[in-house]
Structures are given as C-alpha cells and as structure tokens.
C-alpha cells in the first residue's frame, strides 16, 4: 500500500493565516486540534450530535467533526480561542459563562460559546425560551443547562451595557 497523498490546507484561523499538509480525510476538528494545535475545540462524539466541536466558519456555527479540512481550504474559521479579546480579557460570552457558573467540567463549553456568540449576533435580545432553544443543539452532561441559559441572557445583558467585546 502507498502512503496517503497529502494536501496543503490554508485557513485563516482567528484572524491568522495557518496551514498544514494533511490527508484528504482529515476532519476539520482534528486539523484544528492536532495539526494546528488549537485544542480549545473539543470532540465529544464525532458523529455530529453533541456540538462540542462547534466552530464558526465564515461566522456561521458548524460542526468541525462533520467537515473535511480540505473542503474548507481558504476559509476563515473562528474557534473558542479566538473569542478572547485582543487584550487577553475574556470575550463577552466567555465572561458570561464565568459569571453565571455556566460550566462544570468545561468539556462542552467551547461548543456552547461559539454557538451562542453567533446566535447573539442574530438575536441580541433573546427571551429565556429563545435562549433555551438557541442552545438546544448542544449536549452538556454536567450542568443541566439551567446556568447555560442564564449565561446566554447574561451575555446579552453585558453586550447591552457596552462591555468590551472585540469579536
């Protein structure tokens, strides 16, 4: 058998151009985690159900475990690492999770944060029910979701009060 053919994949990740040579079947989640070593994006199922691998592709939330890295070459990707403010302080959704005790083990958290970040751009003033719906595609085994819903509402509140958020 021959070794696998490698392809150069160039992406703009969190504003920085990054690249690696990988086989065609390399999942985007693995590409980010293992080739680019951005391990903030997590993998909880690898079959598209848990949402832990959610990243923003051109600003839209997608599941990194369902996409091949080669198929998005040239795109802009944002991961949870990229939602930190430029001065190193927490981005607004990250801060809201901290303040609302929206995480326990933290494994599901990056997927929630990217999802909510994108959601609030579309709907900056969600009701509690809308907040519940907004996160209904992500699994968390620890928190029972109550404080994640609280985090969504808190993030909206922080944005309204003009708290710094660079992204």
């Amino acid at each position: 058998m021959n070794p696998e053919e490698l392809f150069l994949v160039e992406l703009t990740v969190n504003g920085t151009p990054l690249s690696a040579r990988v086989p065609a079947r390399r999942l985007l989640s693995d590409f980010l985690r293992h080739d680019l070593r951005l391990t903030g994006t997590h993998v909880g199922c690898e079959h598209g159900v848990c949402g832990a691998c959610t990243i923003l592709l051109e600003g839209k939330p997608v599941r990194g475990c369902l996409i091949f890295a080669v198929s998005v070459a040239g795109s802009a990707v944002t991961t949870v690492e990229g939602l930190v403010n430029n001065d190193g302080t927490l981005g607004v959704v990250q801060r809201a999770f901290h303040e609302s005790h929206g995480l326990q083990c933290g494994f599901c958290t990056p997927g929630f944060i990217t999802t909510i970040h994108a959601y609030l751009k579309e709907n900056p003033h969600p009701t509690e029910e809308e907040a519940r719906e907004a996160i209904a595609g992500n699994l968390c085994r620890c928190t029972g979701y109550q404080n994640i819903i609280k985090s969504v509402l808190r993030a909206a509140e922080l944005i309204d009060s003009g708290v710094r958020d660079d992204h």
Partner: peptide
C-alpha cells in the same frame, strides 16, 4: 465565589487528555 478554573476553560486553554501528546 466565582470559579478559579473558569477563565482557562472558557478560553480554550483547558488541557484534557486528548489535548496532550500530539
């Protein structure tokens, strides 16, 4: 008291098992 572990975990700086040993 807000959790000391959070800032690391919410910013993608947690280190779980598969984040090690690339």
């Amino acid at each position: 008291i807000l959790r000391k572990e959070d800032p690391r975990l919410v910013s993608g700086q947690g280190r779980y098992l598969d984040d090690l040993g690339h």
